[in-house]
Structure formats: C-alpha cells, structure tokens
Amino acid sequence: MADDDLSDARPSRERAPSLARRRWWRVVRLLATVVILACACLAAALVWQFYVTAPWTRDGRVRVQVASVAPQVSGQIVDLRVADNQNVAKGDVLYVIDPVDFDISIATAQAELENREADLQVKRTQAARREALSTLSTSVEEKQQYAGTAKIAEAALASAKAQLHQARVNRGRTEVRSPVNGRVTNLLLRAGDYATAGTVNVAVIDTDSFWIDGYFEETKLAHIRVGDVARAELLGYSALIDGRVESITLGISNANASPSTQGLPNVDPVYTWVRLAQRVPVRIRIERVPDGVTLVAGMNATVSVGEPGAHGGAFWKTLRDRFTGPSASSGQERVPGAAAR
C-alpha cells in the first residue's frame, strides 16, 4: 500500500511544475502580444503625426532676387571690369562705355551755355537802355519788346544749363555700376560689344536677398503661423538652416477661373474621385546659414515649421475631430489675411 501511495504522488508532483510553466508561457505570450500591439499603435500615431499633422514638406526651393542691369546710355564697351561669378559690392563699376561722344556733348553744352550767358547780358543791357528812355524817344511797345527779348534770353540760358547738366549726367552713366551686393552670373558680355540703353546685359544675384519657399499642402496650413520657427535642410547638405515664417501666399492659380472666349467661366468637366491637396507657397526668412553651406537659387530643400514635437498634440485633436467633428475653438472663423498680418 505504501508503495502504491508513493507511485501516485510522484506523477502529481511532476504535473504541477508542468502546469505552472504552461500558465507562465501563456502570460508571457499575452504580454508580448499587448506590447507588440502597443508598439504598432504608437508607430501608427507617430507616422500619422509626421505625415498628416506636422507641417513639413520636401517641396522647397531656395529663391533669390536678381538685379537685371541695363545701361542708361548707348555706346561701345571699352572696359569690362568684372568676370563671370565674381563677387561685387554695391556701387562697383561693372563696365565702361566709350565716353568720347559724351565728352564732346559736355563741351558743346558748355559752349552753348557761354553763348546764352553773353546773349542774355546783351539783351538785358538793351532792355535797360530802352527802359531808361522817355516815351518821347521810344514807345511803350518797344520797351515791352526788349523786356520780352531779355526774358526769352533768360529761358534760353536756363535751357542751356539743363542741357549741360544732362550731358554731365550722361557722361557719368558711361560707368555702369552694380545696384546691389552680390555676384555676377551668366556673364556673356565682352569688351567691344555695343550696349543699348534699356537692354539688360548683366545679371547680378543679390546675395543679401536669399529666402526659401516651402510649398506646403493645404492640409498643413492650419499649423503654420507667421513668425513660427522654421528649419530647412538642403538636398546636398545635412546641416540645418534656421529661419522663420515671413509670409503665407493668399492666392494660387485656378485653372477653372480662366474665362472662355465669351467671357464665361471655363470649368473642366472632368472630376476625379481622388482629391489632391493644393500646395501653397510659404516664404521662409533665413536667419542663420551654417558654415560650409552655400546657398544657390533653385536648390531643393526640405522645410519643417515649428519646434520639434510642438505639434504632437495636433495628432489627437485631428483624430478626435475626424470622429466627433470640429471643436468649438477650431470652428471659429478667421479673417482672411489675418495670418499674413
């Protein structure tokens, strides 16, 4: 009997650890499933925040103002003082037009001025002499004629002075100067070329005017305000450019707004089920450029607005609004153009 009792107790003791191990593995598998599910939800939330709520775009461009330089006088270029891709300061001479003809114009205008001065002196003397005579020696009409002749001579002298001033101004315009601090680009001009007044022949990039345009989807504009911190990463550099939102464009082109030949709206009858978000330009003022980064107009940039993590709460708000509708605070109307101000 004792042997039978011992044999029955041995299997029961062996089964107890086996059942405990199975229960433990069930708990471990359940916890692992919960952890994996939580990680998946967190990853989905982060992806949603990054692609839907966080204001960022890879569609950015470096922009700059370009000064189109054209001479104000015509003539042959005798001295080209810049080269392609050369840095220049505001007021530096870019090229010189042959000044010989303008020197002759100054000499001619100076001679004409002296002639008019002498003529005026004669006319004034004659008018004064007639004015001193009595009506017995000359008539009132003759006095008026000589006085009028003196006035005409005064006007001719003023015209001669203006012509001399214009000749000197044109002489100074033979030295064509840079209107901005910048860099000469795409220079095709050569000494000996003929420069025509009003025709652009030199382009100078204004290096003080660089900015970045970020073309954000319209779904991101709710999280962008003028003055927000912005960062841009150029395609060829890893360092970030610091800036701020300077303005938001209040209008983009609309193909349906173009009138037909009869002046009626030209509406495209094709409408797709997939509605693509329009892209709106946002101007970023550059505040700091890292060392080693060279700004070139037309470069691609990835632009993000706001401090990192500042838009984390927007994920839950957007998710809530999608299921419950916009909240009262988000439904408040904004005056058009308020963001731009």
Rank of each mutant, 00 (worst) to 15 (best):
Lys220His: 09
Thr57Leu: 01
Arg334Trp: 11
Thr199Leu: 12
Arg283Trp: 02
Ile241Leu: 05
Gly214Phe: 04
Leu37Thr: 13
Val69Lys: 06
Arg283Ser: 03
Val93Cys: 10
Ser105Gln: 15
Leu234Met: 06
Arg22Met: 06
Ser247Met: 05
Asp242Leu: 14
Arg173Glu: 09
Thr149Asp: 12
Phe216Asp: 06
Thr318Tyr: 10
Asn85His: 11
Ala147Met: 02
Val289Met: 05
Val282Leu: 03
Asn300Met: 14
Lys123Gln: 13
Gly75Arg: 08
Val122Ser: 13
Ile104Gly: 03
Val282Asp: 03
Glu233Thr: 15
Gly227Asp: 06
Leu240Val: 15
Arg279Cys: 03
Val274Cys: 01
Phe210Trp: 03
Val289Leu: 05
Val289Arg: 04
Glu14Met: 06
Glu217Cys: 02
Ala111Leu: 12
Asn85Lys: 11
Ala232Ile: 12
Arg231Tyr: 09
Arg322Trp: 15
Thr53Tyr: 08
Val82Ala: 04
Val78Arg: 02
Pro259Leu: 13
Leu187Asp: 02
Ala339Ile: 05
Ala297Glu: 11
Gln262Ile: 01
Ile212Trp: 07
Gly214Pro: 05
Gln72Asp: 15
Glu141Leu: 08
Ile248Met: 12
Ile224His: 09
Gln262Ala: 11
Gln86Ile: 00
Gly182His: 05
Ser159Gln: 10
Gln121Arg: 12
Ile77Cys: 09
Ala107Ser: 14
Ala203Val: 00
Arg26Ala: 12
Thr318Trp: 14
Ala111Asp: 11
Val184Asn: 02
Lys123Met: 11
Arg225Tyr: 04
Arg21Thr: 04
Arg26Ile: 12
Glu175Lys: 15
Ile106Trp: 00
Ala328Cys: 06
Ser330Met: 06
Pro265Gly: 02
Pro265Leu: 03
Glu112Tyr: 01
Ala197Gly: 08
Ile286Tyr: 07
Val296Gly: 07
Arg341His: 11
Ile36Ala: 14
Pro308Gly: 00
Cys41Leu: 14
Gly172Asp: 13
Val69Glu: 04
Arg13His: 03
Ile97Val: 13
Val27Tyr: 08
Tyr237Val: 06
Ala195Ile: 13
Val229Ala: 15
Arg341Pro: 01
Gly148Lys: 08
Ser139Lys: 07
Gln86Asn: 01
Val176Asn: 08
Val267Met: 07
Ile224Met: 10
Tyr146Thr: 14
Val47Pro: 00
Gln65Tyr: 09
Asp4Gly: 00
Val62His: 08
Glu246Gln: 13
Val34Ile: 15
Gly236Lys: 12
Gly91Leu: 02
Ala70Met: 02
Gly60Met: 07
Glu175Phe: 10
Ala340Arg: 13
Gln72Pro: 05
Val280Leu: 13
Gln126Thr: 09
Val282Lys: 02
Asn115Cys: 00
Asn254Gly: 04
Asn87Asp: 10
Gly236Asn: 15
Ser304Tyr: 03
Gly263Val: 10
Leu319Pro: 11
Ala314Met: 14
Cys39Asn: 10
Gln110Phe: 04
Leu235Trp: 15
Ala257Asn: 09
Val303Gly: 09
Pro308Val: 01
Val66Ala: 02
Leu235Gly: 15
Gln76Gly: 08
Trp316Arg: 05
Asp59Phe: 04
Val303Phe: 06
Met1Tyr: 11
Thr324Asp: 14
Ala232Trp: 09
